[in-house]
Design a protein around this nucleic acid. Structure first.
Lengths: 332, 332
DNA sequence: CTGTTAGCGCCTTCAA
DNA sequence: TTGAAGGCGCTAACAG
């Protein structure tokens, strides 16, 4: 293939070791003169460093791996943006791998790929790791951190929004707007995230001594279709005056099905979504949301990952906040 | 770090060479018995192959790299899906890197990262490579192929939709619906893609002997805001009865600004977008689009990349088609 | 400041 | 079918 440091050494009339020192920028260990000679020779030969060789001997890599749950998670972009920003700043490379949705085999494959390459660190974005892969990840001896997902019992270190608070805040927002009958739609109730949010919703309703009904809670998977289904479940003549959607896409599903029912948002029904991605701004009516700090999640994620101490890592939540738009209004 | 084949060899009572043969599956070169022994030892030690070492000696890698222009290109997901499908099938790993939007430095960085790792092949999705990086890519001696972007004069091999045809087809569709005054909005007229589509639009208008006006063509960058701006440029009282948007997001921008103007879509104004991603289905009215075969682009991309012969590669266009939805209707 | 030497973990002849 | 030996390209002591 390409030229090696040996070729450069020959052309520049120095030893390979010197070339190595110059090229890897170990300043103070070579003279300006030889440095220039080496660089010139390298350029002339179109030299490209062989990362495999470097990593083989140094046993460290300058790339961090991001494993994402699928191509469909529309907020992952923001998290990755934050990661990239930090990587740039710290002169690290980032590679991204997809691990599908709840697919143990794909997860394993992605993990193996990055472990075999002994990356510097692994960030897992919205990955609900199959327990069969726990050991693989743990025994690799590579720092890792989960992003945008919560675990029970400190199974793994993670950074996420406080999902209980998300549910709580969305609900109190609506209650304080005068709503009493509030739906909770399209979250995956099997997931810890979904359960936390639901718990937050229930707590808020309880605190205000508002009755709830199982019919108001619809199961799903955070998807557009789940929003549509939820609205269908509530029905054309629903008694609900407000709904909390588990994601922006789910909220759009609710909006569209409401329109099909000729239920007016926000006049007949207020909708609050969770996430607050750009989608909230481009649909009409715009969607009021509990907005998560995804970009910050990426930034904090990188900082934490690189900061070490992941073993004694104690829960870090990134901020959330209500962004008011047109899809929710006061009731009564 | 982890165990090496030497450790395994010791534990299994064979030579490292044998372990290597067993683990890399060179069947016919070892007995079942030793194979079992080796595998058992490997599992016991939690062995993970050191990819750096393997690649250093074999000089080949089983991973293909995908470089994407940014996290914002919402159709890239579909292309990547297609790529992943093929990779899965051929037992290849894929890593994804972002190269920003028109950012020569980021492009260079991404290229270097993957070249240094001597990946099997490089797929560049929606990357308008800065000329300063042409040489880097070419001299790496790694097969590469551009996806979803066109080049003049065979600068690089690519697979894309036929952008001229896209412009032409969108226009004739509207003309045949009776529209005469048709806008062409929010495409980047500096890009070859934008120019081709515009040429297609003009050809169609010409063929039907329809006059056009420079005012009907708005420049932009395929973004949501460009759609909004285009509609503002056309104005509340526009004479246009139809507009072709350069992307789904741009179309949504047009929709929203039209609504702000109280211009009814499709009654007062028909809108056709280019791309046909899921966004077309979740906004109201749904958007009629010239739909591109992004997934197929990914699949064909992988096949072509791996098939070799990229030097004598002759243009391959993936299919397009009109998907009728509610945002466009007959005029007059 | 620079050259020499010895591997990193693995694959691959070559011989046995 | 297996083992021994050499080397991939690079870095890291250790001398000088």
């Amino acid at each position: 293939m390409g030229a090696t440091i040996k070729d450069i050494a020959e052309l520049a009339g120095v030893s390979p070791a010197t070339v190595s020192r110059v090229l890897s920028g170990q300043s103070d260990f070579y003279s300006e003169k030889t440095a220039r000679r080496v660089h010139r020779a390298a350029k002339k030969l179109g030299y490209q460093k062989n990362t495999s060789a470097v990593e083989l001997v140094t046993k460290t890599s300058k790339t961090i791996a991001v494993i994402v749950s699928s191509t469909q998670t529309n907020f992952a972009d923001q998290i990755i943006d934050g990661i990239q920003e930090q990587a740039m700043q710290k002169d690290l490379n980032v590679i991204i791998l997809y691990a599908g949705e709840k697919n143990a085999k794909l997860q394993k494959r992605a993990l193996e790929t990055v472990i075999e390459r002994s990356v510097l660190g692994i960030l897992l974005v919205a990955i609900d790791l199959d327990p069969s892969n726990d050991n693989l990840l743990r025994s690799a001896n590579i720092p890792f951190l989960f992003l945008s997902i919560c675990f029970r019992n400190h199974r793994f270190p993670f950074i996420s929004s406080d999902d209980f608070k998300i549910g709580y805040q969305a609900t109190t927002y609506l209650i304080e707007k005068g709503h009493v009958k509030i739906g909770f739609a399209a979250a995956d109730l099997e997931s810890f995230t979904g359960q936390l949010r639901l718990a937050g919703y229930r707590r808020a309703m309880d605190e205000y001594q508002l009755p709830t009904s199982p019919d108001w809670v619809s199961d799903g998977d955070f998807a557009y279709e789940d929003g549509v289904l939820a609205m269908k479940q509530y029905g054309e003549e629903t008694q609900l005056t407000a709904v909390i959607a588990s994601s922006d896409l789910a909220a759009i599903g609710i909006l569209n099905q409401a329109q099909a029912f000729n239920v007016k948002v926000p006049n007949d029904l207020s909708v609050v979504s969770i996430d607050g991605t750009y989608l909230c701004n481009i649909v009409r009516p715009r969607i009021t949301s509990v907005t998560q700090s995804f970009r910050e999640m990426g930034i904090k994620g990188m900082q934490t990952l690189l900061g070490g101490k992941l073993d004694q890592f104690d829960l870090l939540y990134t901020g959330i906040g209500i962004t008011e738009r047109e899809s929710a209004k006061s009731h009564g």
